[in-house]
Nucleic acid binder design. Structure first.
Lengths: 349, 349
DNA sequence: TTGTAGGCGTTATCAT
DNA sequence: ATGATAACGCCTACAA
């Protein structure tokens, strides 16, 4: 019972071998005779040595085995979105073979520039995945680049040289809109994700700039089909927000279809319609986006486009793996799949 | 443009000061004259030095600034539960002042014993928070203890010496049951969380052992008031599961009240009741557990007990902080608060 | 306030 | 198959 933890040197001494041999027993980098191996293992057991200290190993190797995941928002809000959840799962899968764990980093930079401690600048990460998009992302990229840390961006405004995982948001949303128009709808309202960092709830005026990439791009896709459709922005992607927005939309008029930018919003919209005595899809068609399982939406099955959320995460993980391998990772653009449900139908005459 | 990254020694040389001075400029541990400081900073800038290498720093300090969070389940499933989400938020808050980040660790140990790489045994963590409860948790505890890593357990079966964050599940559930009985109900069904690792969906037979702690304890609380109430186990805590279970329950009989072990299950139960033409609370009273915001449940407001999920996470974080500080952390037991909603009423005569 | 020196625990290289 | 040795980059007594 020494006060100090045993080190590999202690183990080597106890086993009567050299440190390098002991080290090799644990890393398996070089063949070792069975006899010596077991001697070392026994020595380790007696000394209560549980393996190399990861800190020392990572200094020596120049690798920590940790991948940072940087969010632009509070963790609680971020994980409420099933798309994010699935992405994380894919990401975790893809980095697992690397022997890497995921370090959650939220962007807490105080406005003053005095960053709080656990930040991008000091975390022992081998690579980083930036998720979402905000003004600060450029700064974050700069910091990471200066540190020489490989970065992959998921659906965000990366610079050149930075591999990004993207989605065909424009095309997918246009496809949905075309489906709706194909059914005969002309009186359509667009229900969008937050339009900017302020997250203003309400009708989007034409002079208002939409700074959130996803929102702007999906809106563009829908407007290609319905150039004049009014758009209403929610504060976040949730059923309750969809419900609130839905009430406001129905209070202002009676469109025959609502194209929502997320499944959760669409679910809320449906509920608002029911509340107003409208039947879906007979009186109102509603479409979603994402293709996530909306808990509690039964018996409806949303007409939506399915985005490969898990695959997006996995692709990001693979891109990270590639960059850590010295290869350079290509950007990748995923494609959504249209899925017809029972929430759209021709408008009533 | 040297091929090697600049180190603090390079910066010191460039600035014409000693390494220790340069080091101090970055750590701020000791006062430095303004003149020297700026010389060092300038030197760092010219050399593209962005601060001490975290790996080296952590070896030297014996700290990595990382707290591991160990889940018993797939990440995607885990984060679907709002309670977990909030806990994570509290946890993140509480460890932030430590300058620590959160490393996601899922328990991936292959059954064969050949653990996959990114594991508890090799992660450079200063402390760990174990969440939930499973058989493997004991092993995990053993590993971490052997490594000398402080552990805090949230709602799980920890050994002695391990601080745990707990909830008064028994008392809280009993309080709910008493409320229900106070309204006059006698024909009650209990709708529970999964009863064991197999997650069997269906009526819980009396000879079946309930291995999941939370489920067993809450059930015990309810049974103290309704000793003979039948119990039906869901596969997971979700609205859809509540709906499915609710259908099964109503197909088997017409209780006047259902006591659910989570708000999500309760929400599904309500939906099942509506579907069956029952009004809540007139024809059927329903109670929940957790006090989370159930997206899309409007206009209902669940009668439930509110658990301080965020506080639980925060407490765990503070316990971690304490143990890293050398103090020892006390276990803590949180109390739920009863909250009357509009989903319970006296039974109809 | 600034400098000197030693070591944190490992692993990679090279020789044996 | 095994061993000696030199980094990895930093921090912190301690001394000046």
């Amino acid at each position: 019972m020494s006060s100090r933890r045993a080190t590999i040197a202690d183990v080597a001494r106890e086993a009567g071998v050299s440190v390098s041999t002991a080290s090799v027993v644990f890393s398996g980098k070089t063949p070792v005779s069975d006899a010596t191996r077991s001697r070392v293992l026994v020595a380790a057991a007696t000394l209560g040595y549980t393996g190399p200290d990861p800190r020392a190993a990572s200094l020596r190797r120049g690798r920590s085995g940790i991948v940072g995941v940087v969010f632009q928002d509070h963790l609680s809000r971020v994980f409420l979105d099933p798309v994010v959840t699935h992405m994380m799962d894919g990401l975790a899968d893809a980095v697992a073979p690397l022997g890497a764990g995921l370090l959650l980093l939220r962007d807490d930079e105080t406005p003053e520039g005095a960053s709080s401690d656990p930040s991008l600048t000091t975390a022992p990460i081998d690579a980083a995945v930036l998720i979402g998009c905000s003004g600060r992302m450029r700064d974050q990229l700069a910091v990471l680049e200066a540190r020489g840390i490989p970065v992959v961006v998921i659906e965000g405004d990366a610079g050149p040289h930075v591999p990004r995982i993207d989605l065909d948001n424009h095309e997918a949303q246009r496809a949905v809109a075309q489906h709706v128009r194909g059914l005969g709808h002309t009186d359509v309202v667009l229900l969008t994700l937050p339009a900017d960092a302020v997250r203003t709830f309400g009708w989007i005026r034409e002079d208002r700039e939409i700074t959130t990439d996803v929102t702007r791009v999906r809106l563009g896709g829908a407007r290609e089909v319905f150039p004049d459709a009014p758009a209403f922005a929610a504060e976040s992607s949730s059923i309750d927000q969809g419900l609130a927005a839905g009430r406001a939309i129905l209070a202002a008029g009676r469109p025959t279809a609502v194209i929502a930018q997320s499944d959760l919003l669409a679910a809320g919209m449906i509920r608002a319609a029911e509340e107003a005595g409208l039947r879906v899809p007979e009186d109102l068609s509603v479409t979603g986006f994402d293709g996530v399982v909306v808990d509690g939406l039964e018996p409806y099955e949303l007409t939506t486009v399915v985005q490969p959320a898990t695959d997006k995460g996995r692709a990001a993980g693979e891109a990270v793996a590639a960059r850590l391998d010295g290869r350079d990772a290509a950007s990748f653009r995923f494609t959504c799949t249209f899925r017809a449900g029972n929430t759209t139908a021709p408008p009533r005459l």
